[in-house]
Every structure is written in structure tokens, then in C-alpha cells.
């Protein structure tokens, strides 16, 4: 009888384990890879601890919004990509490929993101008008101020890869 109870307890424990496994949620991260000296895997906490940048830009709804996040230049700097004083010579043939978890991909050339080249600051936003990004677009979305179409405002960013254009 006791043996039987032990069996039942074991089965219950197993069920509980499998239940907690199915509930386990992974924390979203952004990977920064490719031609960088320090590949990164950033969580929301990591990004919250970095220098915060705010920009205003007009989304597809035609309205101006305030976006808060981290400048891509700062993320690339932290990963050790060749920006700033190193953005010269053959490094001018590098690009950043940004990937969404939905499969969409967009590219930026490095000078487009470098404050030594442009005053426009492209950010990885985690807030829109002081709120988390709308459902389906978060946790992170690229915001490119001043662009006529927001087609490079890629949402659900999962990976950023620096590559050389090879031709």
C-alpha cells in the first residue's frame, strides 16, 4: 500500500515538473555578433543600465511619438565594432544586419549610425511615449528619425550582425 502511495507521489512529482517546464519562459535577449571584438547577448536589464537616448519620430500612423532606448552607436561601441575613429578604410564596406524574430531583416551601413558622420541618432527603443512598446512590436524596435517610410523600424529585434560586404 505504502509502495503504491510512493508511486502515486512520484507520478505527481513528475507531472508537476513537466508542468513547470512548460510554463518556463525564456528571457528575451538581443544578440550582437559578427565583426565585433565582444559579441553581446543583451537582456532588458542590460539595456536599461546603458546610456538612455530619447528621440522623436513619426510612425506609420502619421503621428509623432517619443521613443526611449539606447543609441545603436552605443551598442556597437560596447560590442567593439569599428565605429568612431576606426570607421575608415576597409571598414567603410561594413554593414549592420538587423533581424526580427518574425524573419524580417533590414540593413544599415555603419556611417549611418555613427555620430562622427551624422546627427541623426538611430535607437533601439524599448519605450514609446513613456510606455512599453505596443503588443507584438516589443520588447525592442529600431526607430530611425527622419525617414519618410518606417520600413526600417524593424520590430521584435532579436539579432544584430556586423558584416563586411563581400563582392
Amino acid at each position: 500500500m505504502q509502495q503504491k502511495h510512493r508511486h502515486i507521489l512520484f507520478v505527481l512529482l513528475l507531472l508537476l515538473c513537466s508542468y513547470s517546464v512548460t510554463l518556463a519562459q525564456t528571457v528575451p535577449t538581443i544578440k550582437v555578433e559578427g565583426e565585433v571584438t565582444h559579441p553581446l547577448s543583451l537582456t532588458g536589464q542590460d539595456l536599461a543600465a546603458m546610456k538612455r537616448t530619447e528621440v522623436s519620430a513619426t510612425d506609420r500612423d502619421g503621428k509623432e511619438h517619443h521613443y526611449t532606448g539606447v543609441a545603436l552607436a552605443d551598442i556597437l561601441q560596447q560590442a567593439g565594432a569599428t565605429i568612431g575613429s576606426q570607421l575608415r578604410g576597409e571598414n567603410m564596406a561594413k554593414y549592420l544586419l538587423v533581424k526580427s524574430s518574425d524573419g524580417y531583416e533590414v540593413v544599415f551601413s555603419l556611417p549611418e549610425l555613427d555620430t562622427a558622420f551624422t546627427n541623426r541618432i538611430v535607437i533601439l527603443a524599448d519605450q514609446q511615449d513613456g510606455q512599453p512598446l505596443p503588443q507584438g512590436k516589443g520588447p525592442w524596435r529600431i526607430v530611425v528619425p527622419g525617414e519618410k517610410r518606417p520600413a526600417r523600424w524593424i520590430w521584435q529585434v532579436s539579432t544584430m550582425v556586423v558584416r563586411f560586404a563581400k563582392e
Binding site: 518556463a24 519562459q25 525564456t26 528575451p28 524574430s101 518574425d102 524573419g103 507584438g136 516589443g138 520588447p139
Partner: peptide
């Protein structure tokens, strides 16, 4: 769907187009 692979809530019920 993809949530089974990634464990990410944003991937729930997500499949290839």
C-alpha cells in the same frame, strides 16, 4: 509553434508564412 523551440511568449502560435 516556435515558442516550443525558443520558450519566448512572443513566439506563441507563430508559424511560417
Amino acid at each position: 509553434g516556435i515558442e516550443q523551440l525558443t520558450g519566448l511568449a512572443t513566439d506563441r502560435g507563430r508559424f511560417r508564412v
